[in-house]
């Protein structure tokens, strides 16, 4: 058996791949939905985004746009903190077991 075939059998490795893929693809999907949701609003309901908040001139489009920006940062943060706390220890175990 090759080294990589042995690693493929390692339960730690299987857990790493399962967790990382599901989180990575889920977060990518959320980002896609948030962003294209925003684009569809821009394309099909521009005036909805132009609705003023209370009596002022600030429209709801402003906080929504800012929210998309902030969500990109937060989603990245979620992934990085998960990876630092969960994936890195797993990777260290997998690599360490082969030294």
């Amino acid at each position: 058996m090759n080294t990589y075939e042995k690693i493929e059998q390692d339960p730690d490795y299987q857990e790493l791949v399962r967790r990382r893929s599901s989180l990575g693809w889920t977060l990518s999907a959320i980002m896609l939905i948030v962003y294209f949701g925003f684009i569809l609003l821009v394309a099909y309901a521009p005036h909805l985004l132009g609705t003023p908040i209370s009596a002022g001139v600030t429209t709801i489009g402003i906080p929504i746009g800012l929210l998309v920006i902030v969500s990109a940062f937060l989603l990245t943060g979620i992934y990085v903190s998960k990876a630092n706390s969960k994936y890195d220890p797993l990777i260290r175990k997998i690599v360490g077991a082969r030294r």
Partner: peptide, 24 residues
């Protein structure tokens, strides 16, 4: 005005995808 924000948003949202699927 607002159109500028639409562009900024588009330029930013590629980064999370880079993090999740490409960087490591």
């Amino acid at each position: 005005g607002y159109d500028g924000l639409i562009y900024s948003v588009g330029w930013l949202v590629g980064w999370p995808v880079v993090t999740f699927l490409i960087a490591e």
